[in-house]
Design a binder for these strands. Structure first.
Lengths: 142, 142
DNA sequence: TTATTTGCAAAGGCTTTGCAGCAAA
DNA sequence: TTTGCTGCAAAGCCTTTGCAAATAA
């Protein structure tokens, strides 16, 4: 993933490009669809920067979320999870057995939005969609 | 709403029917689609039972949720909200301007589940769907 | 140089736990 | 009578805030 663009975006907005900030962003990018929470990010970045504080994670997550670079997710475990914002909205299917998180994007969303507009005249700005169930593999082993 | 059935259901499961427990359940039922959080429920019930403790709210909410009588919702404000479980799943449209919460049920869900099954072979057990946007009234005033 | 960011520690907010007394069955 | 429930206070978590020292620009 191209972090150069994200860097210059933050820079233009007046934020400073610090090692810690970039490390947080990188951790989220690298973890791809693992949806890390603050303390997981902290643990990862701490390997590289031993003195790295948890508060710094939170401060940066707020910046990155405000600027739309990452999304915050509620996965019902009382901690907030983060993923890189690929700007195409998607929803999450969380398997209750193996914990695997599947993502649905594009095609699903187009249909969903049609449906939603048809049912109610609501303009969607943000969304938080999590389905809990069993993935195709686990379903067979129940 | 018929609380007699819910009472006997809890009783059969070995729970005791206490005034406080019923008051919590009633508060959630009465508040219909207001999606109260723990402290709002506490405030309501306290009017009737002055000594009523917040911890008791939480203990009862856990019981009621475990037994499937109420649903817990994450509305991204860092507190958990509760609604009576009418057993037909529905999703929430939260207006970012007026705070109004609209609910979509039945018809929407049938279509949504078709869509979902079509995209992935996932069996849905639970879901947490919140859309944030502008309701038809507020949309015109932006 | 100067304004932002860091890192520590402390504080905050919501939720859970422990326990003695109370109450439902 | 027995076992679960209540209510208080204390503890637990996750997250935020305050502030002096460090650092990007």
């Amino acid at each position: 993933m191209d972090i150069t663009f994200l860097k210059s975006y933050l820079h233009k907005k007046g934020y400073r490009i610090t090692n810690q900030r970039m490390a947080v962003l990188n951790a989220i990018i690298q973890a791809e669809n693992k949806h890390l929470n603050a303390s997981e990010i902290h643990a990862l970045v701490k390997k590289q920067y031993p003195g790295f504080g948890l508060a710094t994670v939170y401060k940066n997550l707020r910046v990155l979320e405000q600027e739309g670079l990452v999304n915050k997710l509620d996965l019902s475990d009382n901690t907030r999870h983060y993923e890189i914002n690929l700007s195409e909205p998607h929803c999450h299917l969380l398997c209750l057995k193996c914990g695997h998180i599947e993502e649905l994007g594009d095609a699903f969303y187009k249909s969903l939005y049609d449906l939603l507009w048809h049912e109610s005249r609501f303009t969607i700005e943000k969304r938080s969609l999590v389905f809990y169930g069993y993935c195709s593999t686990c379903r067979l082993q129940l």
